[in-house]
């Protein structure tokens, strides 16, 4: 049965169904129905590939390996979670502790007058700052009152304008301002180039 079906595959080439190729060459032609050309049977699909069988033990081992790898990564991350990135400028370098005795200045003996003067100055300064603060508060009050008055007067004139005026000005956010400086800027001044060395340390694990 199997043989027959294989031969059918080559039936296009064969002249007879059962005759061998040798027979064709010998011009052994029959007039029977077997001589007619036949259409091969259509094959609509590729023959199935044989499924590779993997040992279940190997699969298990592979899975295990993957899980272990992830677990290891998690463990490493957890270990580092407690460890914070050091802030170098917050820590006193150790060599400074070693040189402490060398770096100490000669202790200054302050005369009682100086101590007294300093204490007095501290008190005066507190008073001065308090006065300054009070004057600031008064100024803010004054300015706010002026604005309140202006808004009240505006309300008397027109309610629409008042409503527009009390809307917040969103264009002000974000607001930046360059404060006053100690020396005035020099016009067209090109500051000399310094050397730029990036010493930033990378702390990723």
């Amino acid at each position: 049965m199997f043989n027959l079906s294989i031969i059918k595959q080559f039936s296009r080439l064969s002249v007879t169904c059962t005759a061998s190729i040798k027979q064709i060459y010998s011009r052994n032609i029959f007039t029977s129905s077997a001589l007619q050309f036949k259409i091969t049977e259509p094959l609509c699909a590729e023959p199935m590939k044989k499924k590779k069988k993997i040992d279940p033990a190997i699969i298990k081992a592979r899975e295990e390996r993957r899980r272990k790898k992830i677990e290891k990564q998690i463990r490493r991350l957890q270990k580092n979670a407690r460890q914070l990135k050091p802030i170098e400028e917050m820590e006193v370098p150790l060599h400074l502790f070693d040189e402490m005795s060398k770096r100490k200045r000669a202790p200054v003996k302050l005369s009682p007058e100086v101590v007294e003067a300093r204490a007095l100055l501290q008190k005066d300064w507190a008073k001065y700052k308090q006065q300054e603060y009070m004057s600031h508060v008064a100024q803010i009050d004054r300015i706010m009152a002026a604005q309140r008055r202006a808004l009240d007067k505006l309300y008397e004139e027109s309610e629409e304008l008042y409503d527009e005026a009390i809307m917040p000005d969103l264009s002000l956010i974000p607001y930046t301002i360059d404060g006053p400086v100690v020396t005035p800027p020099i016009k067209d001044y090109l500051s000399p180039d310094g050397e730029y060395i990036d010493v930033t340390k990378k702390w990723d694990n």
Binding site: A146, A150, L154, A165
Partner: peptide
Amino acid sequence: QFLSNAPCGFYK
């Protein structure tokens, strides 16, 4: 740079 939508002072 205007600092507010509201007027800050009034004069008549």
